[in-house]
Simulated assay, not measured.
Amino acid sequence: MPGETVQPNPRGPAAVPVPGTLMVDTSRDDRLGEFRGVAGPYWSLRPVRGGAGWEAEPAAVRRATRKERLHAEIERWNARSRGEVL
């Protein structure tokens, strides 16, 4: 599955996810988003179905579970079938 590998984090021992990896921001009621990159001390995430992104503290972000990733993919497929632009 895309986004399952990681890149070394130049700031320390933790690994920075590959862009596109689905992540959960635990500081925002477990909000699911795609990892977009590093913005200073924060990680940039954007909603799976598009829209405005946000920045999160890396310590408050975890990888999405298999169930969460599947749910996100189903949401994408449903949105595309309705002709929504993502």
Rank of each mutant, 00 (worst) to 15 (best):
E75F: 03
T21E: 13
T65Y: 10
P47E: 01
G50N: 00
E73G: 11
E68M: 04
R31V: 10
Y42K: 15
W43P: 13
G37I: 11
A60C: 11
R49D: 15
G51D: 06
P47Q: 02
P10W: 00
S27G: 08
Q7W: 09
P19N: 06
G33Y: 02
E68S: 10
R76D: 13
E4F: 14
M1Q: 10
G51H: 02
P47L: 01
S27R: 14
D30R: 12
Y42L: 14
P8R: 08
I74R: 12
R76V: 15
G33S: 05
Q7C: 06
V24A: 09
E75I: 02
E84T: 08
G40M: 05
G50Y: 00
Q7N: 06
A64K: 03
T5F: 01
M23T: 04
E4P: 01
M23A: 09
V6S: 06
S81A: 10
A15C: 13
R46I: 04
E4K: 13
R11A: 06
V18P: 07
G50A: 05
S44K: 15
P17R: 12
P58W: 09
L32P: 05
E55V: 14
G83A: 03
R62Y: 08
E4T: 14
N78I: 10
E68A: 06
E4G: 14
G33I: 00
P10Q: 01
G50M: 02
Y42Q: 15
R36W: 10
M23V: 10
G50S: 03
E84D: 15
M23P: 04
A56C: 11
R31H: 08
V85C: 02
V16F: 07
A72W: 01
R31I: 02
R46H: 07
T21Y: 09
G33D: 04
N9L: 03
E55P: 01
G37S: 06
K67V: 12
E57H: 15
V16C: 13
I74W: 03
Y42C: 12
V18L: 03
T21Q: 15
G83I: 07
G33W: 00
P41A: 15
S44L: 15
A64Y: 05
R76Y: 11
V6M: 11
M1L: 07
G83L: 01
K67A: 15
V24P: 12
G53F: 02
V18Y: 03
V6C: 01
P19K: 14
T65P: 09
D25K: 03
T5I: 05
A39I: 11
W77C: 11
P13W: 07
V18G: 01
R31P: 00
P19V: 06
F35R: 05
V24K: 02
V85K: 13
A39S: 13
A60V: 03
P13G: 04
V6W: 12
R63V: 14
R76T: 14
E34T: 12
L45Q: 09
R36I: 01
P17K: 12
W54K: 01
W77N: 13
R62M: 12
R46M: 05
R49H: 13
A56Q: 05
L32W: 00
E75H: 08
G83S: 05
P17I: 09
R82P: 00
R49S: 15
A72P: 06
V85A: 12
V38K: 05
A14H: 13
E55W: 06
A14G: 13
V6G: 00
P2Y: 08
W54D: 04
V85M: 06
E84V: 09
R63T: 14
